[in-house]
Design a protein around this nucleic acid. Sequence first.
DNA 1: TTTACTAGACCTCTTACTTCA
DNA 2: ACTGAAGTAAGAGGTCTAGTA
Length: 336
Amino acid sequence: MELGLRLGTAPAGRPSWAAPVTEGGRGSGLLLTMRLGVGRHDDEVGEVREEEEDMEVREPPPPPSPPLQLNLLTLAPPELPPPSRPQFPWATENRNFDGLMRGFDVNWTPPLEAADEGTSSSSSPNSTVSSFRIEFSAQRGWGESAGGAAAAAAAEMTSSKLEDDEENGLARKKLRLSKEQSAFLEESFKQHNTLNPNQKLALAKQLNLRPRQVEVWFQNRRARTKLKHTEVQCEYLKRCCQTLTEENHRLHKEVADLKALKTCHPFSMHFPAATTLSMCTSCERVASNPAISAADRQTNSTAALFSRSRVLSSVSHIAAAAPRQPSPPTDRLELM
DNA sequence: TTTACTAGACCTCTTACTTCA
DNA sequence: ACTGAAGTAAGAGGTCTAGTA
């Protein structure tokens, strides 16, 4: 097993999980990358990047869900799905967004229950975004229904209220995105974790959010992903470090035993002590099994042990770099 | 071709608000 | 009802890159 550790800073301006670590990187972000390969010596950045992608935090594959008709690459409205296919209501609504807005009377006042529904559904009277709630059942089958217009109007009203509040200098309350909006953004994020301006505008339009809100959501989402990724990597490193530390202890003990043995019987050992060690080819554990065959001894001898000692030596650096994992001094094993 | 400037995108850190146990 | 922790939307300030004069 080859074990290496890269510590570097993620260059800004591009996603760190896809970015090569360069010397010129700046920022305070800590990028931990662990490479685990068997019998490979690939130091090229490109290959490292492949390893990073393998280490990427991947959520379990989501259960089959109705395909979202996200069309973020162009501003063209997505195609209408078959009626039986469940869709997010605003997606359905926004497929007809242009049509709705074309026929939308800006002077139209939504019914009271439509306007009040949001505030009653949210604990925060100022939560303008979460106040924008749409009933799925009511949305299904809408074409140019008044309900769709009402929802759009309600969203429009809350949006304009927000802008009014900002313009009036009132304290801006933190907005809470609805579950549906978050779910839709999440689906978008799975497709593209960054947005170009057109995609941002399209998404904002679809969700009745401001482009800035979409932008911020994606920024925060990327930050959460990176944080999660780092946490997973740290846990992985901890486990590896613990395993290797234990093995290091065991090997140190074996070396001590062998030295003691040599001291007691200096003339009975005509070959290096390490040659009495054997490495199990399946589990790669070094063992001084007296019953092991001579052929195995020859195959798994000093070189293998030295190789492992180098690994352990490098692991000591990891242990030093890895936080909060007490590790004993791991000097290079000295054989003879 | 090089240099300075600018706008936009993104990152990290932080704050403030919401939700929940 | 109160409280603290966790989650998260949003602001601030910084860097980098591409475009342009």
